[in-house]
Amino acid sequence: MATPPSASELRRAKYARRLPAELSELGGPVHGTVALPLPLHLAWSGLTEFDLDQPRLRMSCYRIVLAEGMYADLVEHLNRDLLRGIWPVLRTLISRDIRSVWEHAFADLAPDARAVA
């Protein structure tokens, strides 16, 4: 009899299904205000608008979109270059499951890739 998947494995599968094929698909803004859309499937509690020029608000926005966003949200609200730039700090603020899925899918986000770059 097969062992049922763990809660962590189920979460990782959920996050993996939402990923873009390549980081280049992340075409969101670099500056200005991001307003997370209705219905409130992304920011259902607290702020719904984030000024990307404010480091704390930028991190909050990216944390929310990574955790709650579907594929369309990821490609609309996240920016490839911005994500790569803030990843060393952002990776410490998100869940282990999200971090694992993104670093496994995109080698340039993995810690060893950044050390070489």
Score class of each variant (00 low, 15 high):
42 L>H: 06
25 E>I: 01
55 P>G: 05
46 G>A: 08
53 D>P: 09
28 G>W: 03
86 I>W: 05
77 H>A: 03
60 S>F: 07
27 G>A: 10
2 A>G: 12
72 A>Y: 01
31 H>Y: 05
60 S>V: 00
115 A>M: 13
88 P>T: 03
2 A>R: 14
83 L>N: 02
115 A>D: 11
44 W>P: 10
80 R>H: 11
66 L>M: 07
50 F>V: 08
64 I>D: 02
46 G>K: 12
77 H>N: 09
91 R>A: 15
117 A>S: 14
83 L>S: 03
3 T>R: 13
64 I>T: 15
31 H>C: 04
67 A>Q: 06
19 L>H: 09
24 S>G: 02
72 A>L: 05
91 R>W: 06
29 P>A: 15
43 A>H: 06
91 R>C: 08
52 L>S: 07
80 R>A: 15
57 L>R: 13
114 R>W: 09
8 S>C: 04
42 L>A: 12
53 D>S: 09
19 L>D: 13
38 L>A: 02
45 S>E: 14
53 D>Q: 08
112 D>S: 15
55 P>T: 04
94 I>E: 10
6 S>R: 08
35 A>W: 00
40 L>W: 01
15 Y>C: 04
56 R>M: 11
97 D>S: 11
69 G>V: 00
25 E>D: 14
33 T>N: 01
10 L>N: 09
105 A>I: 03
47 L>F: 04
110 A>F: 10
25 E>C: 10
74 L>H: 13
111 P>K: 05
101 V>I: 09
4 P>C: 10
20 P>C: 10
50 F>P: 13
117 A>V: 11
59 M>S: 13
116 V>N: 08
109 L>N: 13
19 L>E: 11
28 G>L: 12
91 R>I: 08
87 W>P: 09
77 H>M: 06
14 K>D: 12
37 P>Q: 01
73 D>G: 00
100 S>Y: 14
38 L>R: 01
12 R>K: 15
38 L>D: 02
76 E>P: 01
94 I>L: 05
80 R>V: 03
6 S>C: 06
60 S>K: 14
21 A>L: 10
88 P>C: 03
51 D>H: 02
72 A>N: 01
2 A>C: 07
87 W>T: 08
58 R>Q: 15
107 A>V: 09
64 I>L: 15
34 V>W: 05
9 E>P: 11
40 L>N: 03
88 P>R: 04
16 A>V: 00
20 P>D: 05
22 E>P: 02
100 S>D: 15
64 I>Q: 11
24 S>K: 08
22 E>M: 06
52 L>D: 01
91 R>M: 12
74 L>Y: 07
72 A>R: 06
93 L>T: 13
6 S>Q: 09
11 R>W: 09
51 D>K: 04
106 F>Y: 15
58 R>L: 15
99 R>C: 12
5 P>S: 07
111 P>C: 04
10 L>G: 12
68 E>T: 05
111 P>V: 10
16 A>D: 03
83 L>K: 00
34 V>M: 06
112 D>W: 14
35 A>I: 01
46 G>L: 12
93 L>V: 08
18 R>A: 15
70 M>S: 04
27 G>E: 12
3 T>H: 06
38 L>K: 02
103 E>C: 11
13 A>N: 04
48 T>D: 03
74 L>V: 07
67 A>M: 04
81 D>Q: 01
